[in-house]
Design a protein around this nucleic acid. Sequence first.
DNA 1: CCTACCGATCGGTAGG
DNA 2: CCTACCGATCGGTAGG
Lengths: 197, 197
Amino acid sequence: MVLEAPTPRRRAIEDAASALFRRNGYPATSIRDIASALAIRGPSLYAHVTSKEDVLWAIVDRAASRFEAAAEAAEWTTPSDSAARIAALVRAHVDVVTADPGDASVFVAEWRHLSADRRAGILARRDAYEARFRGAIAEGMASGTFAMTDPSVAATFLLSALNGIATWYRPDGHLGRDRIADYFADLATRSLTEAAR
Amino acid sequence: MVLEAPTPRRRAIEDAASALFRRNGYPATSIRDIASALAIRGPSLYAHVTSKEDVLWAIVDRAASRFEAAAEAAEWTTPSDSAARIAALVRAHVDVVTADPGDASVFVAEWRHLSADRRAGILARRDAYEARFRGAIAEGMASGTFAMTDPSVAATFLLSALNGIATWYRPDGHLGRDRIADYFADLATRSLTEAAR
DNA sequence: CCTACCGATCGGTAGG
DNA sequence: CCTACCGATCGGTAGG
């Protein structure tokens, strides 16, 4: 819902903060750390941001928006069976995480440091996002495609596994983004499907 | 390897710190916060601990030891097929996490705030632990029990899902410990097994 | 974008 | 286990 386009400088600040928050966490990252990454002094940051939490919020908000948009697109273009729907949701999630592991890490690990209002807002969006997974799982169970399980447990199982990627993925690693998406889509769909024999 | 039995007071400090580190993270938890949970003043803590990081280390170390012991026991008592081995490892992990979600959370999320030496030590133990999962997965692939995948990716997939439990599990929730273990063992073994049809 | 500086809080010590 | 206190660092402001 926050749609103002940030200035290039503001973007650079958020990107530097995102990488630092990912590595050291929000509380252990100081305003001076962020400024130092941009080769300026701490107080100079306040010409572009109003508070440290404001930077955290910008990162979390844009990450949430990306997850929402990707899932929306995935479900739009894949209205077929439940297994394909889950696979598409998984692929979309992997794409967003690997496209910006910094933002994804901050989104999953640092939202608790937001103010109470913003935290509640993010939790609600998070729940709505998870509901897509729960829905696809429940649908697959009802149609007999998926094994019996608790849709909420299974959705959390998958999303925890998916969010874990944010902590270990390195763009220069030996495993490419689409290869990860392949493996995860397979693991995820199999985890819901009755085993052979 | 740190085997001295802690005094009751020391245990109480670690337990209080574990809960606070879980909720707010290590850097955002002050020595005075921990002391306050025990109804004493900050400096009084130093009669029992030598530093804040020392408390973090005690929690991380004991959590690691519990994971190691549980996995060791699981593999000892389950030498049968790969699926049973994975299921036993998953159940053992769920047991340790749900027995003390505070310690488990700190173990998975706060180890990066340890000193470089201790961090390296924990990473090595973590890798040895993950190797049990990788081994069981590779063994199952070789014997034709499991579908083809990357054992390292699959192990990380499972362990991320398992560690996620530490962040959402509540002892007073509607889902019991063994029920969670049941669901997770099923999801995990299915994720590695070729689907029916 | 800078220097100078603020009140608050941090981990930890001295000395009972 | 306490009070009193330390130097360092924090987020942020004033005033260019």
